[in-house]
Each structure stands twice: as C-alpha cells, then as structure tokens.
Amino acid sequence: MRLSDIKRILNATVLWGEEHLDREVMSACGSDFMSDVLAYVKNQALLLTGLVNPQVVRTADMLEMTCIIFVRGKVPGPGIVELARERDIVVMTCPKRMYEACGLLYSNGLRGNCDGDD
C-alpha cells in the first residue's frame, strides 16, 4: 500500500515528506510503548503511535521504518519533525484513535507481521 493511500484512508495530514507519498509499505504496527516496538516488531515500515517525543523517531530509525503516523490528533513539535526529516522518515498526524486507525488500515489490506511468534 502506498503512503498516499494511507493518508487518504486515515484522513491524515502530512507534516513532512509529501514528496515521498509514493513509497510502498507492506506492513504496520501500532504502539505507544517503544520498548514493545523494539522487542516485537519486525519488518514493519509504518508506526502508528500517540507518543510524541524524539524517542519515537529514534526507534523508527533503528528499525528502518519509512513513516510515523501520530494518532488522536497529536502533533509533534518542530524538533521531532526535523529529526524525522534528517532520517528521511515521513511524518503524518491523523484525528483517529489508534484502534480505529489500525482497523481501517487492516481492513484495507495492510497487515502486521503475522508470523505466529506471539
């Protein structure tokens, strides 16, 4: 699924990276706990979170994610957006709660890492 599709499905606003919306993502994860993301996430290109701090960007960068979507209408400060820009990570915000955002993406064909490990 392209980031442009995700933007449309979630009625999201791009805070940085509009020129990269043609990027393709194959899976996603949603969490407010970056320790869980580091421990359990494999091969996801998209992170949905309501946590707004620089650690989110650092975590996404370590896992080579291409996009962060802040849910619940959360808007990161300019320092967080700049950090994401430096790491070439698209940043969006959407008004939906995480449960609804993940459900919408799942029902439109975007999956998580369903390898049966958990």
Rank of each mutant, 00 (worst) to 15 (best):
L38Y: 10
L48C: 08
H20T: 01
T49G: 08
D32L: 03
L110K: 00
D117E: 13
I6G: 02
L3V: 04
T59N: 08
K7R: 15
I80F: 09
N108F: 01
S35E: 14
V56W: 03
E64P: 01
D61F: 11
R8G: 01
V41N: 09
Q44M: 11
V37K: 02
Q44D: 15
M34P: 03
V25P: 10
R23T: 12
R85Q: 15
A28L: 13
R97Y: 11
P95M: 04
V57F: 06
G17W: 04
E64F: 11
I69D: 01
E24A: 06
L51Y: 03
M65Q: 11
T49R: 05
V71E: 03
S27M: 04
I9C: 01
A101S: 12
E100D: 15
D118G: 14
M1A: 09
M26T: 12
L110T: 01
I80Y: 07
G116N: 08
R58V: 05
D36F: 01
D5V: 00
T59S: 05
V25G: 08
P76M: 02
N113I: 01
I80Q: 12
D88A: 12
C94Q: 06
T93Q: 13
V81D: 05
Y106R: 11
I80A: 10
R111D: 12
R87Y: 06
L46E: 07
D36I: 00
Q55R: 11
W16Y: 15
M92C: 10
K96I: 07
N108M: 01
I89Q: 05
L10E: 10
L10F: 07
M62Y: 09
N108Q: 11
Y99E: 15
L15H: 07
N11D: 14
I80H: 02
M62V: 04
V57S: 10
Q44W: 00
H20R: 08
Q55S: 10
E19K: 14
V57C: 09
R58E: 13
I9T: 02
L63D: 09
P54N: 06
M26R: 11
M34L: 14
R87D: 12
K96G: 00
G79D: 14
L48F: 14
A45M: 05
K96T: 03
M26S: 13
I6T: 12
A84L: 07
M26V: 02
E24D: 13
